[in-house]
């Protein structure tokens, strides 16, 4: 499903450039549930943004479902993000002026699905995450766990092949974190590839596999203690 070879990424900074990802090689199969582990600043978000085609890489090759993702046009990238990928963020990133239902329905707006239809579909997805009765609530009337479940419903509504989550439990207490992880497991059981960035071992342990990142380099098969944050 996902194949990275020798991916490099630098950020231009005031003084010069910061080499964030260094010759990253990575294979993630279809239907896997993997975590990307690493301490703060190790390049996890950068890697996830590249996987999500939100950001571009400097060199290397990124194949998504056997297609080379390089120099995509604006509309092709948008199409991938819309139909192929689903995002979940640490800070939820719901639109504050839209109801839970409207937030979930938004990706379908960009697929030109009629309002009535997309709201009906959104209601089904809210039911799946256990928030059907909350469809008319605004984000500020929801708890953190509920917001994240709305965000997951939004990520799933366009039936993506891959769901990318950047520290989805980072802002939640441990009980809510496990509920959200259970939801990701359920999503994964439907055959969707799920990639979760986290620095918590408890979360990582719930995944099939952990990819360990340190200072922009992938370390596999090494002692877990090296990655304690």
């Amino acid at each position: 499903m996902i194949s990275l070879t020798k991916i490099n990424k630098s950020y231009k900074t005031g003084q010069g450039s910061l080499h964030v990802l260094k010759d990253v090689d990575l294979e993630i199969g279809k239907g896997e549930l993997v975590s990307i582990m690493g301490s703060s600043g190790s390049g996890k978000s950068t890697l996830l943004n590249i996987l999500g085609i939100l950001d571009q890489y400097d060199s290397g090759d990124y194949y998504l479902d056997d297609k080379l993702i390089k120099n995509l046009s604006d509309s092709a990238a948008a199409e991938y993000r819309n139909r192929f990928l689903g995002f979940v963020f640490q800070s939820f990133n719901l639109l504050s002026f839209k109801t839970a239902q409207e937030n979930v329905a938004l990706p379908l707006y960009y697929q030109n699905v009629s309002r009535r239809e997309r709201n009906a579909i959104a209601l089904d997805y809210l039911e799946m995450v256990g928030l059907k009765d909350w469809y008319h609530h605004m984000p500020n009337q929801l708890s953190g766990g509920q917001k994240q479940r709305v965000a997951i419903a939004r990520a799933l509504i366009s039936k993506p092949k891959v769901v990318l989550a950047d520290e989805p439990t980072g802002a939640l207490d441990s009980k809510t974190s496990y509920e959200v992880m259970n939801l990701f497991k359920k999503v994964n059981e439907q055959g969707i590839t799920v990639i979760i960035v986290t620095h918590e071992h408890d979360i990582s342990r719930l995944c099939d596999r952990a990819i360990k990142l340190k200072d922009g380099v992938i370390h596999n098969g090494e002692d877990e203690s090296a990655f304690t944050s």
Binding site: D74, A78, Y110
Partner: peptide, 16 residues
């Protein structure tokens, strides 16, 4: 800015 970022992350084109 954030709203526009969110819209782009779920599939909005620059044109839209």
């Amino acid at each position: 800015t954030r709203e526009i970022g969110i819209r782009k992350s779920i599939g909005a084109t620059s044109g839209s």
